[in-house]
Amino acid sequence: MSFSEKIASIMERPGQDPQSQDDVPWWMKYGARAMGTVGGFFGILFGAFSCLTIIVASIPGFLSGVTLIIAGLVVLTGEAPCCCIFLDFVQTLSNIIEKRPYWNRAVLYCGLAVLPLFLDFSFGKFLASGLIFGTGVLYGMMSIGKKASIDEMRSAAVDSTIPTSSMKGNLVENAQPMSFSNKPDSNV
């Protein structure tokens, strides 16, 4: 068993089909899962640290910390449910997130990452939200799908022609002739 197969077997979810049904590369799938796990941990850590700002009566800092903890917990639950096994609802929430298409996860993670930064900005929140947002971006890239092969792109470029009814096709034909007009009268 190779090293990459060992890593893949560790990162698999229980009951997951070993053969992927989509065309997403394995490194992108596990990279998004790893980034989400690290981002979730940092979100919970920096969110808890930000909640300590309630001592100096910083309500936006406290609310931002709470939303970052919630975002980190949701991402950690979706990407690495084994880290939150002490919570009863984790497997149910993880199954719901796992069944959703990639673009749903992208929107959820990006939305959760931006909210704490609107409430209060700090470097720790920026780092944790950046990792969560990066996970959403990776899921967004996975939802776009695989790029076409070079032969398919080459044949599509050769076969494409500009129709005459397009804006570029008739722009020069509809051009008005240039004419010279006299200088306006200054008496008017």
Score class of each variant (00 low, 15 high):
160 S>Q: 07
186 S>L: 11
44 I>G: 03
185 D>C: 08
40 G>Q: 08
85 I>G: 11
143 S>Y: 08
53 T>C: 07
94 S>A: 15
146 K>Y: 01
120 D>G: 09
160 S>P: 00
85 I>R: 14
65 G>I: 06
170 N>I: 07
49 F>E: 01
159 D>P: 01
111 G>H: 07
38 V>Q: 05
71 A>L: 02
121 F>A: 07
50 S>L: 13
75 V>Q: 15
52 L>H: 07
11 M>I: 02
42 F>N: 01
108 L>P: 04
106 A>G: 12
46 F>A: 05
101 P>I: 06
62 F>W: 12
26 W>N: 04
36 G>S: 04
6 K>Y: 01
107 V>C: 03
94 S>F: 06
44 I>S: 09
147 K>Y: 07
52 L>M: 14
102 Y>N: 15
149 S>T: 13
72 G>N: 14
118 F>N: 00
167 M>N: 12
109 Y>H: 10
159 D>H: 08
2 S>D: 15
151 D>S: 13
141 M>I: 04
114 V>F: 05
69 I>C: 13
116 P>V: 02
110 C>F: 07
65 G>W: 13
34 A>P: 07
143 S>P: 01
47 G>D: 06
130 G>H: 04
177 P>A: 11
107 V>T: 11
175 A>R: 09
134 G>R: 00
74 V>R: 04
1 M>T: 14
141 M>P: 01
15 G>R: 05
121 F>D: 04
69 I>N: 10
8 A>W: 01
75 V>A: 15
68 L>K: 04
110 C>I: 15
36 G>M: 00
19 Q>T: 14
151 D>M: 10
31 G>E: 04
86 F>D: 08
157 A>W: 02
107 V>E: 02
177 P>L: 10
170 N>S: 10
82 C>F: 12
83 C>I: 10
93 L>C: 13
68 L>W: 06
166 S>F: 12
159 D>R: 11
139 Y>F: 14
118 F>G: 06
10 I>C: 05
128 A>T: 02
172 V>G: 07
108 L>H: 07
85 I>F: 05
159 D>M: 13
185 D>V: 03
18 P>G: 12
16 Q>N: 04
19 Q>L: 12
82 C>G: 12
62 F>L: 15
36 G>V: 02
86 F>A: 15
129 S>D: 10
23 D>V: 00
154 R>F: 05
178 M>H: 00
73 L>A: 15
142 M>Q: 14
97 I>Y: 10
25 P>D: 09
85 I>P: 01
90 V>M: 07
179 S>A: 05
18 P>D: 10
113 A>I: 08
54 I>F: 08
64 S>V: 01
